[in-house]
Simulated scan of single mutants.
Amino acid sequence: MSRDDDALRWDGDEDLDLESSAASDDGARPGASAPLVHEARPRGPLGWIALALALAATAGWIVIVVANPVQQPSLLGLVMYQLGELLAVIAPLLWWWCVDRLAPLARRAPWWIAGLAVTAPWPLVAGVLA
């Protein structure tokens, strides 16, 4: 019987299960991939400063949300407004995390600076400067 015909039959599958369990008991099988290990991503001082600024921006958005309660005429309007507030609060930390995980080390600084400009709590900044 050819190997192609063997693939279409159930005969002998018990033997394969026994062989695979015995190989896993013996340790690493040849050709098996190693378990995934989370490697540490270097951040440096700029990464920690960017994280501190993202936390400050998140705190600023929380201050804005608490200080400016808004009434909406409909339930849908209220839900959508509160969704926008939630996204504004988590945006700085989400931006920092995405840049930390996705951007190469050499290109993180410009992305973190752009994130600071985009997700900054501008209503709070304008209120303080006015």
Score class of each variant (00 low, 15 high):
99 V>G: 03
105 L>E: 11
62 I>D: 01
33 S>L: 15
130 A>Y: 02
98 C>I: 05
68 N>S: 09
95 W>A: 06
8 L>K: 15
5 D>P: 11
86 L>D: 02
60 G>T: 03
81 Y>F: 12
18 L>N: 10
125 V>P: 01
117 A>D: 10
89 V>R: 07
9 R>C: 00
18 L>P: 09
108 R>G: 08
63 V>P: 04
74 S>R: 15
22 A>I: 06
104 P>N: 06
24 S>Q: 10
6 D>E: 09
97 W>F: 05
50 A>S: 15
21 S>G: 05
52 A>Q: 05
64 I>V: 14
4 D>C: 11
62 I>F: 09
2 S>E: 08
79 V>A: 08
82 Q>A: 00
76 L>I: 06
97 W>P: 00
88 A>I: 01
84 G>E: 02
115 G>N: 10
36 L>Q: 03
74 S>F: 13
120 A>W: 09
5 D>G: 15
115 G>L: 04
120 A>H: 11
7 A>W: 09
10 W>L: 03
2 S>T: 06
95 W>H: 06
37 V>S: 13
84 G>R: 13
20 S>D: 08
54 A>S: 08
101 R>S: 00
59 A>K: 09
99 V>S: 01
30 P>G: 00
31 G>L: 03
112 W>N: 02
98 C>D: 09
107 R>M: 13
33 S>A: 13
12 G>K: 13
34 A>F: 06
34 A>C: 07
38 H>R: 14
54 A>D: 02
1 M>L: 10
38 H>L: 13
129 L>G: 02
49 I>N: 08
113 I>K: 01
64 I>K: 12
123 P>T: 01
96 W>Q: 02
124 L>A: 06
45 P>R: 14
112 W>R: 05
107 R>I: 02
35 P>L: 07
110 P>V: 03
51 L>M: 05
82 Q>D: 05
116 L>N: 07
26 D>S: 14
116 L>T: 04
45 P>S: 01
117 A>I: 12
42 P>I: 00
36 L>N: 02
103 A>P: 11
72 Q>E: 14
101 R>P: 00
1 M>A: 13
125 V>E: 07
51 L>Y: 03
102 L>I: 06
57 A>R: 12
37 V>F: 10
128 V>K: 12
69 P>A: 05
62 I>T: 10
67 A>K: 13
50 A>H: 08
106 A>K: 15
113 I>V: 07
40 A>P: 08
94 L>N: 06
30 P>D: 02
109 A>D: 07
99 V>I: 11
108 R>K: 15
70 V>R: 15
127 G>D: 07
91 A>K: 11
82 Q>R: 10
32 A>Y: 02
96 W>C: 05
1 M>N: 14
99 V>K: 04
118 V>G: 09
118 V>F: 14
83 L>H: 04
11 D>C: 04
41 R>D: 01
51 L>H: 04
125 V>D: 08
124 L>T: 08
54 A>C: 11
85 E>K: 15
82 Q>G: 00
112 W>D: 00
87 L>C: 06
127 G>W: 13
80 M>E: 11
97 W>N: 03
3 R>T: 01
77 G>P: 03
42 P>L: 03
94 L>D: 03
10 W>K: 06
6 D>R: 12
